[in-house]
């Protein structure tokens, strides 16, 4: 019985070590691509900082990984989150979205931040600096609304 237990433990350990050689591709791209949000739209520095701290880890081409983000299977789990986040909204690719999609995204930003659904709770547990105060939430919401109205009132693209 004891032998079997030891055997399982060794197999698990070996599996864990082998796993470390299979890491997902890291999200460590360049942020200023010329197509990113900040390179073509003027965004106030205070908003810029908030978006960078609270949203960019999953919604841009560059993630600031925590140390344990290098360890599999955590790295795989993180990678999945980042991929999903970028699929929904990627601030680095902002200018490649058609205007209507930009509006959709801005409305989603407004709603998600207002409802407290974003940043994700699981993310906030680890990233205390990403927690948004009520005032900060208001700042992001009014920015999103203002930006959306600019696009809405723009003459045909």
């Amino acid at each position: 019985m004891k032998k079997a237990f030891r055997y399982i433990l060794i197999v698990l350990l070996v599996a864990f070590i082998i796993m470390q050689f299979f890491q997902p591709k890291k999200n460590l791209g360049i942020l200023s691509t010329g197509k990113d949000l900040f390179s073509q739209v003027y965004v106030d520095d205070s908003i810029k900082l908030l978006l960078e701290t609270s949203c960019f880890d999953c919604h841009s081409n560059h993630t600031n990984y925590p140390w344990y983000g290098q360890i599999s299977p955590i790295s795989i789990f993180l990678n999945k989150h980042v991929t999903e986040g970028k699929e929904k909204l990627n601030f680095t690719e902002w200018q490649s979205y058609p205007d209507k999609e930009k509006i959709s995204n801005l409305v989603d930003i407004y709603d998600e931040v207002e409802g407290g659904d974003m940043p994700l709770e699981s993310y906030l547990k680890i990233h205390k600096d990403a927690v948004l105060s009520e005032h900060e939430r208001d700042l992001i919401m009014s920015w999103a609304e203002k930006e959306g109205l600019v696009l809405l009132n723009k003459k045909e693209e």
Binding site: I103, S104, V107, Y110, G148
Partner: peptide
Amino acid sequence: NMLKKTGKLNDIIE
């Protein structure tokens, strides 16, 4: 409002 409707309509299409 019009802004939110536009956002949602675009989502619906998608």
